[in-house]
Design a binder for these strands. Structure first.
Length: 592
RNA sequence: GGACCCGUAGCUCAGCUGGAUAGAGCGUCGCCCUCCGAAGGCGAAGGUCGCACGUUCGAAUCGUGUCGGGUCCGCCA
């Protein structure tokens, strides 16, 4: 059930258009838009209807616009219609058309803005998907927030959404992790060996030297005692301990990651483990199916030009014919040791998702995976699926006006947990959504906690707190029953006629179309900007009351007007909560 | 050499999928307030939308080229 006033006006415009210009092709009508007017003098809304059909109708846009105006002026919602510019039709609605949104909003509650635009389309949103080799850091954080908010947004427009985490627990990385954990295990048992000496033993050298594995080593010692050592209390043969240590460590890391995510408010519905896919033979199955379709062959790749690779030598390998689906080159499926590449596993994973019946997959990745998009989309198309990728660009963290250079070696490595401790989950989530995800962003820690307008989190929360404050005071003045949503939904609203009040009303009316547009564009940041603007409208109204006490919400001697204003305030709070819910941010009742 | 992302006000960024005179916050300048309807308010200045062609009624938005910044480029994930 949609309460989108722009959608209903569009329906009226299209109906009028059919009367004015018969036999219009569907695809032409589809381009008709009804959008909010940018300038208040232009009215409330504008439509491009006459402009987009002019060519098909073989008539001048202004003529069609004039004919539309004649029809639309008779519409009971329309106060004024006029031709403007090259053939726009500007519409000014009766104030009542806007006012009657309030009961709808109050009765709908936080579901205001929901729609059925996505009904029947199942979407899998995969995000975070970090290696379980260490704690979550800032780089993961943006993707986590964007993915989570996007999933909420898609659900709000009616999609059936699954939030999914792909655990990369099958590659060399987790073997390296096991070695690093084993070193900490030795330390926990006070086996005397230096990091340098141990690194000599590790195939490829010791990685993951961070302190975060110390508790893992202790836990291993507590769990296994000395049983992972050799008989002479020295380093055991890897085949005797590697798998146990690896699985134990992955489990602990994964638990820490999910704990950190939970602290951020991110909870996935489904975890898929790469190792399970490998062990259940799904990779072989997926590759076999590609072979059947003639999309796999043995060949030799050209070395990349302009980039010298020291030990490059031409090598024949198993390749996926990605170029058949728009990629630049065909992509390797097998390493020289015969095992599958990460890409091959990922193909199996996406085939797995397609087989589970999703109509659309959306992967949220870091910018460093940008070069991977085309091949993955090629692979999913080979399986008859559709993949959208949302790339999240790098986040630079600022503190005290200075960039924090993140370096594991220098110890200025910011974990998600550090950030949450310093800023709090709500501010982290909101701030991460104040930029388009494919643009780099600077995360200014000082700004995220600032109690001023320059901090959008504060500004929006403050607006909600003020709304709640008004509602509490109204309850004391008029009685709790009088300010219950259903009571307010029946209040006469004629007294809402101040320009600032109407501006706020119009903004509230734009919420459903904002949600739909943001979902269609996969751009959750638009929600943050809408809320910032909405908060601005509300604060402006509040400030008017500060200058002129007649404009304050609560007027002890004029209960009818007070109730109408309280209804507007209550609806504003509802819309803010509706938006914050998409972002996963908790609305506050008061500023403290 | 190639692929992908980004170039909009001094700074950080929006710009609703091609619409009308390109917006916000910060900063700057001016005025007001310092009242718990506290954690400021009002107003002003400030832009050849990196640049050049092209597409069309119309371009910050689409295409091509170019310059600048970023990410990445066979057996890492």
């Amino acid at each position: 059930m949609s309460h989108n006033i722009f959608a209903s006006m569009r329906a009226r415009v299209v109906q009028a258009l059919h009367g004015v210009v018969p036999d219009l092709p569907e695809e032409v009508v589809a381009r008709v838009e009804v959008t909010p007017a940018r300038e208040p003098e232009h009215g409330d809304m504008a439509t491009n209807a006459a402009l987009v059909v002019a060519k098909a109708a073989r008539r001048k846009p202004q003529d069609i616009a004039a004919a539309l105006v004649a029809v639309l002026q008779a519409d009971p919602l329309v106060a004024e219609a006029a031709v403007a510019g090259p053939g726009f039709v500007n519409l000014r609605l009766h104030a009542d058309a806007w006012r009657r949104l309030l009961p709808v909003i109050l009765r709908t509650g936080e579901a205001y803005g929901d729609s059925t635009a996505g009904a029947g389309v199942r979407i899998n949103v995969e995000y975070v998907s970090a290696n379980p080799t260490g704690p979550m850091h800032i780089g993961h954080c943006r993707g986590a927030v964007v993915g989570d908010a996007l999933a909420n947004l898609l659900a709000k427009v009616g999609h059936e959404v699954t939030k999914e985490f792909y655990v990369n627990d099958a590659g060399n990385q987790v073997t390296a992790l096991a070695w690093a954990a084993y070193f900490r295990y030795l330390q926990a048992l006070e086996v005397s060996i230096t990091e340098a000496d141990f690194s000599e033993i590790v195939p490829g050298g010791l990685q993951y030297r961070g302190d975060y594995l110390i508790p893992v080593g202790q836990a291993l010692a507590a769990q296994f005692g000395a049983s992972l050592l050799s008989a002479d209390s020295w380093i055991g043969e890897p085949e005797t301990w590697l798998i146990d240590v690896r699985d134990f460590t992955i489990a602990m890391m994964l638990e820490q990651i999910t704990d950190d995510l939970a602290a951020l408010g991110v909870v996935h519905d489904v975890f898929v483990r790469e190792r399970d896919l490998v062990e259940q033979g799904e990779v072989h199955e997926a590759i076999a199916r590609l072979e059947l379709d003639g999309l796999v062959y043995r060949g030799t790749l050209e070395p990349p030009k302009g980039k010298t690779i020291d030990d490059w030598e031409p090598r024949e390998q198993m390749l996926f014919r990605a170029t058949a689906f728009g990629d630049d080159v065909d992509r390797p499926l097998q390493k020289s040791d015969g095992s599958f590449t990460y890409f091959a596993n990922d193909i199996a994973y996406h085939a797995h998702k397609i087989a589970r019946g999703f109509d659309l997959m959306i992967d949220v990745w870091g910018a460093d995976h940008g070069g991977y998009v085309k091949r993955m989309q090629a692979a999913t198309r080979a399986f008859g699926g559709t993949l959208d990728v949302v790339l999240c660009q790098i986040v630079h963290v600022l503190k005290g006006g200075q960039p924090l250079r993140m370096s594991k070696r220098a110890g200025t490595f910011i974990t998600l947990r550090d950030l949450l401790d310093e800023v709090g989950p709500d501010a982290v989530r909101f701030t991460m959504l104040t930029r388009k995800s494919d643009a780099q962003m600077e995360f200014d820690i000082d700004q995220a906690v600032a109690q001023t307008r320059e901090n959008p989190v504060f500004y929006v929360q403050y607006a909600h707190a003020r709304c709640r404050s008004v509602l509490r005071a109204a309850g004391e003045l008029l009685g709790a029953a009088a300010v219950a949503p259903e009571s307010l939904a029946q209040v006469p609203l004629d007294s809402l006629e101040n320009e600032a009040e109407l501006a706020l009303l119009r903004r509230l009316g734009a919420w459903p179309r904002t949600v739909e547009a943001a979902a269609a564009a996969r751009e959750p940041h638009r929600i943050a900007f809408f809320l910032y603007d909405l908060a601005g409208d509300f604060h402006m109204l509040w400030n008017r009351g500060r200058d002129d006490s007649a404009l304050r919400f609560l007027q002890a001697d004029r209960p009818a007007e007070t109730l109408a204003r309280v209804a507007l305030v209550a609806a504003t709070a509802v819309a803010i909560r509706s938006g914050l819910a998409v972002m996963g941010v908790t609305p506050v009742e008061e500023m403290r």
